[in-house]
Amino acid sequence: MATIPLQLAQRRLDTGNAVQYPQGSPIGGAMQDLGGELSAVAERFQQRKEQQEAFDAEIARRQMMDQIVQAEADVAANAAPDGAGLHDAMYGQVDPRSSQMVKPGLFDTLFDDVLPKIPESQRADFARRKETIRAAGSERMAARQIQQRQQYEQDQWSEVQRAELDAIAQSHPNDTLAFNAARQRGLDVLNKMGLDPRGKLQAEAAWRESTAKTRIESLIAENPIKALNQKAHTR
């Protein structure tokens, strides 16, 4: 079937300048039918064009979302050990009171690069979805930053534990002042960590248990009988 140019298909057959046929003439009726067919073709063409543009916009959106996922992974991989700045690097800063952009992020670059490639008929709707996409990603990245911060604190706490337990092990087992000082230094670090109340109580109990165990091991090495007598007083 031959392709009908859009500019031709979008208008009905104009018989104003053509030869006029008597009303009811077979030729005149055929000309009117042809005009109606061309109009229907134009309508179907426009519907198909809009459908294709909506499809192309959706494919572009999906490709952009894949880019966002990869960008989030790259930003996280290159972030500071404690996760500082991770969220803002990806999604920027938005003033919660005015909803105005304070600092753009990588998300803005990705979105703004894709927007001109969206078919014009779909572009305005696509642009309106920007802040909805940002909000979902912002929540996701904020959770990722918090998780990275928590892991950082746990890693640092492990270092503190090793250092203070080594200090207890190397000090004289009867040096109660040194033992209490090392234990308190550990508790001071725990107090500054972002733990919930229950987690804090559990961590403190585990720390007291670890310090007591280390001291008992030192006492056993020096005087097993004395260690057994002091075990109850160390906890």
Rank of each mutant, 00 (worst) to 15 (best):
M1D: 13
T3S: 15
L8T: 14
A9S: 14
R12C: 03
V19C: 04
G29L: 14
D33N: 10
L34Y: 05
G35W: 00
A40F: 06
A40K: 08
E43T: 12
Q46H: 09
Q46E: 13
Q46T: 09
Q47L: 15
Q47C: 05
R48P: 06
R48K: 10
R48F: 08
Q51T: 10
Q52Y: 11
D56S: 09
Q63P: 04
M64S: 05
Q70V: 03
Q70N: 09
E72G: 05
V75H: 00
A76S: 09
N78M: 10
A80W: 00
P81R: 03
L86F: 04
H87E: 14
M90G: 02
Q93T: 10
P96M: 03
R97S: 10
K103W: 04
G105T: 01
T109H: 07
V114M: 14
P116G: 00
P116Q: 00
I118Y: 09
E120G: 13
S121G: 07
A127Q: 12
R128I: 01
K130T: 01
E131S: 11
E131Q: 11
S138D: 09
R144H: 02
I146V: 08
Q150L: 06
Q151D: 08
Q151G: 05
L165R: 04
D166R: 08
A167F: 00
A167C: 02
S171C: 04
N174T: 11
T176D: 15
N180M: 12
N180Q: 14
A182V: 07
Q184S: 08
L195I: 03
L195V: 03
G199T: 04
K200H: 15
K200A: 13
A206N: 10
W207V: 09
R208P: 02
E209C: 08
R215D: 11
I216E: 12
I216W: 08
L219K: 07
I220C: 08
N223Q: 12
L228W: 11
